[in-house]
Design a protein around this nucleic acid. Structure first.
Lengths: 352, 352
DNA sequence: CTGTTAGCGCTTTCAC
DNA sequence: GTGAAAGCGCTAACAG
């Protein structure tokens, strides 16, 4: 038959192994309108007549339609996502920041990609690289120091970027943070004012933890100012976890290395709390024999006995402010302040 | 001119306000191959000849190409994402679970969408609904109780779903958890064995916190068994935060309401720690005057004095195991156990 | 091992 | 207020 001679090119249109899911076309068919109208009804209900809207809403319900954001993203070039990159999720003070960020972004329809770097710069770069592929509409990062490539990727992404939890002279875009350096100087000055004069800095120093480095530098600088000529004492460990047991270990280490120490400046309340509790066990009187300070004003700080002198950081607020900055940018609203210094507060309690 | 009479249909092909970003076609052109080959080189380098691969890699570098996952997702029907839904991010024990989940998923190329519900069922449903639009390849959820609609959406999504932190007789798909009910019974039995006989259950009970409810039920059931005829004592608050101050408040409340109490069973170590520290302030001897137990084995539990009797939960392991189950499913590997009971461990310490 | 073609599901553009 | 057509950037399907 002549039909047989039809060129092989004319074959049945391919069907991809589709989701078998309901698409906007199904809704459109059910409502008796075009997909375009469905799209409009979903994004801006007011742009569609009341009756049409109702039919569409009913069709959505009946078909159990769930919009496919990947297609939406591809067509509109807006992903409605924000990528958040933090050193560790289980560090509760960072978790608070993410909660703040999420609290502001979710109601606005933005979803959050979360990744953690374990304080490893190369992992941060890898994460930024792969998250870039998601084409987020904004980036939120804890930290202000990144590899060259990571910085380039962020700049090339063409979307707002918030760096946080620190300050930097060369921001990529936006910054919400405070000076870790100044915070530590404030601690040292407080201790010096109280008459302590053999200070030891103690903490966990991961290679990629720029905040810890800034704090150490703040300690050293303030120490040089207040105790000129006195060799500053620093005791750090690199591989230990941020847990109370590490604080207890560091206490022992400090007492063994620098027995003349009369005040220990810890980089975190977690460590300081572990140290205070160990002092209680050992019969070391805090602050009479030894003053102890922390950082972060964790929940425990005020409840410990003696209560812990520390530096309060508005960690949740960092997340919320960052989200607001990102939102403003993503919605093309004016952003006046590109760098927000949220500051810190020294809380003098009984441990010093 | 005749040209003017060309039908208006013949107009220049539309260009959309494209990303102005580098696409795979640019890389293909630079490498002198088709986009298909670039795609293959990216997803399975071994499927491309060595020389071609090198040229492509160079082209990627030169062009600063970043793959667009939204397009990839749309074309391949795989998003390479997992949606994680938790009650609160800043609850450190849940953060550990997410860290475990993320630790396993990120190296496999999956990215994590994180959302939190604040223990509100309606918010969970809304979150599940909107995250469904992202077409994640899997869902991870803390909790086993959801609204009808939420359950339907999850079932219709056609991807693996892990419910966690509890056990349920009607799982949606996969479960990684433990019996909160049994854990609490174990605590009560321990206290009863030690001779305590006026037990009070104390905690924060958010309406949407099914784990807390299960724990209360476990307390009541065990109490009924061990102290038949004795009215069980329960003191809860609904709107307070999970912070130590709430534990201190609850201690005061229990002592005012049920002064005869000789043991308090808290739903969380955070509360129990706040209570222990307040007891120390008040001169209430723990456990001589009053036994106190917690839940979760937070870092502080072993460092408190007296150290805290509690129930240890392998929270990070919940995340890791869940991720492994999801991965197996997403990669079409066999999954033998659909329900994993990771159990719990009663840690008897000095507070009881 | 590599290329061609069609299509994923949506939104933009343009027309009415 | 609504619709038709085209295209977002990629990969599955097929052919060679």
């Amino acid at each position: 038959m002549p039909r047989e001679s039809v060129p092989t090119k004319t074959r049945a249109p391919r069907r991809r192994s589709a989701t078998s899911a309901v698409t906007m076309a199904d809704v459109a068919a059910a409502a008796g309108v075009s997909t375009q109208t469905v799209s409009r009804a979903l994004r801006d209900p007011a742009s569609v007549s009341g009756e049409t809207l109702q039919r569409i809403e009913e069709a959505v319900r009946n078909t159990h339609y769930v919009q496919n954001f990947a297609a939406s993203h591809l067509a509109s070039n807006r992903s409605m996502t924000v990528a958040a990159i933090i050193p560790a999720i289980s560090t509760s003070i960072f978790a608070e920041t993410i909660q703040g960020l999420s609290d502001v972004l979710l109601p606005e329809g933005y979803q959050v990609f979360l990744g953690h770097t374990d304080y490893v710069a190369a992992r941060e770069e890898a994460l930024i690289r792969s998250l870039s592929g998601r084409r987020p509409d904004g980036f939120f990062i804890i930290g202000t120091q990144h590899t060259r490539d990571a910085t380039h990727i962020l700049k090339r992404a063409g979307v707002p970027v918030v760096e946080s939890w620190g300050l930097t002279s060369r921001p990529i875009d936006l910054v919400v943070g405070f000076s870790n350096h100044a915070a530590m100087k404030t601690v040292v000055n407080h201790l010096a004012d109280r008459g302590y004069h053999r200070l030891t800095f103690a903490g966990v120093m991961k290679p990629g933890d720029d905040r810890a480095k800034e704090r150490r530098k703040g300690f050293l600088d303030a120490h040089g100012e207040r105790f000129p000529g006195v060799e500053p004492q620093v005791v750090t460990v690199a591989s230990n976890s941020m847990i109370m047991a590490t604080g207890a270990e560091l206490l022992d280490l400090v007492r063994a290395t620098y027995p003349e120490t009369d005040a220990i400046v810890f980089t975190s309340d977690v460590l300081a709390s572990g140290a205070v509790l160990r002092c209680n066990d050992l019969g070391v009187r805090v602050p009479a024999d030894l003053a102890i300070t922390g950082f972060g004003n964790y929940d425990i700080a005020g409840h410990l006995r003696p209560s812990l002198t520390t530096v309060a950081i508005a960690s949740r607020r960092i997340g919320m402010l960052s989200a607001e900055l990102l939102l403003a940018r993503m919605q093309n609203k004016p952003v006046t302040e590109r760098v927000i210094d949220i500051g810190f507060e020294l809380l003098v309690r009984d441990s010093s």
